[in-house]
């Protein structure tokens, strides 16, 4: 097990390096340092001297990939690519281009609001999806099943934007039950979180229910269930005791990989509800074209993805002793 994890992590290294190179190439090509400087220095009084000064101050006055003026290792290290991208490998995110903030510190503080909104959505969403799916599977073939399915197809055919706009309008503005948007620290955040969490759960429930229902139905068709049923166990018990346990693998595949991404927050949810999380951070960075931040977030995202894959594999062994990792 341990050696497997080590091997997986080693296998992840080239991927991480690949992501790093790809994003660096993309972003430096999109925006030359001159572009960046002009954009950041604003509309007025952007003289060539000011641009040069900005580039020098932020280390963008170096060549992109190879510095012919240096000798030895310096030809590679004294480049924008190495100076800006390589530190990411050891999780040194550096400073943002636009306002010189320390990105690592910012990620650490913004992570919490993101978690405050994504974890409840994740847990409540998963629980309600599993519950409804199980109900539908329990009473498969009845009108409940039929209408439940119809409802979930209908629900997943609606863009998430509609749910957000509608929810804010009805619950926040019209009924005045919740603050329309905003955030506060600690326990004070609860009243702000209810609305986005409810909307987040609703917008995901359609596809989730359909998926888990299929998973359960597949399990229900298996021999051991029939055996259990033949033993005279009630349908509910069969479903909860045996079905749920054995359906864990497909459920986990779907779920575990997304756990690390909870840190990452949700781009749209956070902007609409002014939650100061990482999703909001990313959108801000995209809109103000602060590529130091975007690059860091891309990189963080791929690391989280890889962590998720590894976690998925490990969780298999935990729920199903038959799965051995080597």
């Amino acid at each position: 097990m341990f050696s497997y994890i080590v091997r997986r992590i080693l296998y992840a290294v080239p991927i991480v390096v690949g992501v790093n190179c790809l994003t660096a190439a993309l972003f430096f090509y999109v925006n030359t340092p001159d572009d960046m400087a002009r954009k950041i220095l604003g509309e007025k009084n952007v003289t060539p001297a000011a641009i040069e000064n900005w580039k020098a101050g932020h280390g963008y006055n170096l060549p992109a990939f190879v510095n012919a003026k240096e000798s030895g290792l310096g030809t590679l290290t004294q480049t924008v690519f190495f100076q800006k991208s390589a530190p990411l490998l050891w999780l040194d995110f550096g400073r943002s281009d636009r306002n010189n903030i320390d990105i690592g510190g910012e990620i650490k503080t913004r992570m919490w609001p993101s978690l405050a909104i994504s974890v409840p959505i994740f847990i409540a969403g998963l629980a309600s999806e599993l519950f409804v799916a199980m109900m539908l599977a329990r009473w498969r073939g009845t009108l409940l099943d039929l209408w439940g399915l119809v409802a979930s197809v209908v629900m997943m055919s609606v863009s998430a934007l509609f749910y957000i706009i509608g929810g804010q309008y009805v619950l926040g503005k019209y009924l005045m039950l919740f603050p329309i948007s905003g955030y506060d620290a600690g326990v004070h955040s609860i009243k702000f979180l209810v609305l986005p969490v409810v909307i987040g759960v609703i917008s995901g429930v359609g596809s989730g229910v359909r998926f888990y229902r299929t998973v359960f139905l597949e399990e229900m068709g298996k021999d051991y269930i029939r055996t259990a049923r033949a033993k005279g166990l009630g349908e509910g018990r069969v479903l909860f005791k045996h079905g749920l346990k054995n359906a864990m693998i497909p459920v986990l595949t779907n779920v575990v990989v997304s756990i690390p991404f909870l840190f990452y927050g949700s781009l749209i949810m956070e902007t609409f509800f002014s939650v100061p999380g990482l999703g909001n951070f990313t959108i801000d960075a995209i809109q103000s074209q602060d590529f130091a931040i975007v690059r860091s977030m891309v990189y963080l995202g791929s690391i989280l993805y890889i962590v998720g894959l590894i976690l998925t594999d490990i969780s298999y062994t935990l729920v199903d002793p038959r799965v051995r990792l080597e």
């Binding site: 039929l146 359909r210 998926f211």
Partner: peptide, 21 residues
């Protein structure tokens, strides 16, 4: 209503299965 519906046989739903888009 869901409880009532659960008592009635439905149409073709059983084989109309879901996916994660």
């Amino acid at each position: 209503g869901a409880y009532v519906l659960a008592r009635r046989r439905g149409g073709t739903a059983a084989d109309n299965r879901g996916h994660r888009p």
